[in-house]
Every structure is written in structure tokens, then in C-alpha cells.
Amino acid sequence: MTIFKRGEKELALIELKNITKCYKIGQIQVNALNGVDLSIENGEFVSIMGPSGSGKSTLLNVIGCLDQPTTGTYKLGDNNVEKVSDWQLSDIRNQFIGFVFQSFHLLPGLTALENVELPLIYRGILGKERKKRAIEALESLDLGDRMHHLPTQLSGGQQQRVAIARAIVGKPSVLLADEPTGALDSKSSVNIMSVFQKLNQEMGITIVQVTHEETIAQYGHKIFRLFDGKIEKIEVLNESLKAIE
């Protein structure tokens, strides 16, 4: 599968056209997405916002190849992925997409270093090289002195940075974050957004985050406002992002 090199912005990295997603709950059909059109360029940092039930998480799952749309087309890079097989979706996720969640999803019995190594195990990367890459990812997020700590020995902000290190250790083209600051205090939230800005500006990683916080959404380039499963408004923010703290 071909993905654009970082820094190439001529074409959309993520392009959704007329995406719908329907679920059946008993005899009731739920239309989570109702004809979503969305385009995100390589190297952009965007936020998806909307009220509860508007389809934010469903949309992120489709973008992240965790779920397939009922109808519509989805291009990631120059490849259509809406109809590929499950094993191909798994390969796409492993090779090109990093995930960050609100509740961190760190394995409690593993150290920070071991948690970050996990995605590389699935890629078949051997121990010495795997450890080297994991250490580099943790050190890039100022966690070099915490790599042998268990999650319970880390603060919430530190746990989220470990989760980010795990998401970027495979050098993904796209980082998807579902309420990444939802479980953090305001100071830790600002620190995590500073990390995202650094990843976006210095490494060229495309970032798509779902958030309900206006202040957090303001750190990106655009806000896609979702309502009843449709993009109601696209807000372009000031190109000069907040300074990295």
C-alpha cells in the first residue's frame, strides 16, 4: 500500500466521500454516519467535534480502519480501503496508523518500555532493534527516566505520553486520538497538546483527534463540526498554532 511521504501536501491523505454507517439494534436501524464528505491533507492537524451521539467515534473508527462504512468511498493515500479484507485492514493499521485513547490502554503488568515495544512485536521486529526503537520513542517524549516503571507508578500525563510513544514507535503516517486529554487535568492536557504539536510540526505526522473541549480543538489547523452524522461546518483556524510550551 502506498502512502505519501511526509511533507507532500499536493493530494489529500484521507478522503471520505458520501460515507454512511448503519447499525441494527434489534429491529431498529441506527444511522451513525449520514453522508460524510471529509478531506484531510498530509501533515494537517485536525479536530472532530460534535455533541454526544453525533458520530464522532464512529467516524474516527472508519478513518482508523477499525470499522468499514456501509456505503461510500474512503481513500487513504492513493488506495481505496473501504472494501478491503479484514487482514488487509489489520496490515494498514499496523503499518500506517497510530492510535491514542482517553483511557491509555496500557497493559498494567508491563513496564513503559515493554508497552511501547508491543506494536513492534506484531511487526516481527527482533528484540535488540525493538528495544532500541522503543527507547528512542520514550526519550523523544522525555520519558527516558520512566521506561522501567509500571503504569501504576506513573502520573496520568506520563501514562498518556507512554501511550503516544507506543502509537508513534512504528513511525505512522497518521495519528488518531480519541479524547486524548479527557482523563487529564488542565496542565497535563496542555503538555499533551504540546507533544502533538511537536509530532505534527517536526515529524510531519498527520493528526486527527476527537475532542469535546474547544480549547483543545484550537491547537490544530481545522475543526470538523459533526451533527447527526454529517459534517455541519468546517472551521479553518489561524495557521500560526499556539506556541509549543
Rank of each mutant, 00 (worst) to 15 (best):
I231R: 13
F104H: 04
G124R: 11
I168H: 11
E214P: 06
R161I: 01
L38R: 02
L66S: 02
Q153M: 13
R123A: 07
G229W: 09
G229H: 09
R225C: 08
G124C: 04
G204H: 05
S194A: 15
D228W: 15
A167C: 03
Q218P: 11
Q95W: 10
A243P: 08
D142W: 10
E235V: 07
L38K: 01
I25M: 11
Q160A: 07
L143E: 02
G170W: 07
T58A: 14
S189A: 13
L113P: 04
Q27A: 15
W87G: 02
Q159K: 15
A134H: 12
S173P: 06
V46N: 03
G127P: 07
P180V: 05
T111I: 07
G156Q: 08
G35M: 09
M1G: 11
I223V: 15
V210H: 08
V81G: 13
N42V: 06
T2E: 14
W87A: 10
V116D: 00
D185Y: 01
E235C: 01
F45M: 02
F4W: 12
R93K: 06
G7K: 09
S39P: 03
I40W: 15
L76F: 14
T211F: 13
T206L: 05
E179P: 09
M193R: 10
I168D: 07
T20A: 11
H148W: 10
E82K: 00
K128L: 03
A12C: 09
N115D: 01
K132P: 00
Y23S: 07
N34S: 06
S189R: 05
M147V: 06
G98I: 01
P180A: 06
T181G: 10
N238C: 13
N18T: 00
S47A: 15
K21A: 01
P119S: 00
L176Y: 01
E117M: 15
G124E: 02
E41V: 09
T181H: 06
Q153G: 08
N42D: 10
A243D: 05
V195S: 02
V30Q: 14
E214R: 15
E214V: 14
S90I: 04
F104V: 00
H212C: 03
F96C: 03
I25V: 11
R123K: 15
L11M: 12
A12Q: 09
Q218S: 15
N238A: 13
G156T: 06
A32M: 04
A167Y: 03
T206K: 08
L59A: 09
K132D: 02
Q68E: 00
P151W: 00
D67G: 06
K198T: 13
C65S: 12
S85E: 10
V30Y: 15
K5Y: 04
Q159G: 09
L11E: 13
Y74A: 09
K187F: 00
G127D: 04
N61C: 04
V195G: 01
S173F: 10
Q160H: 05
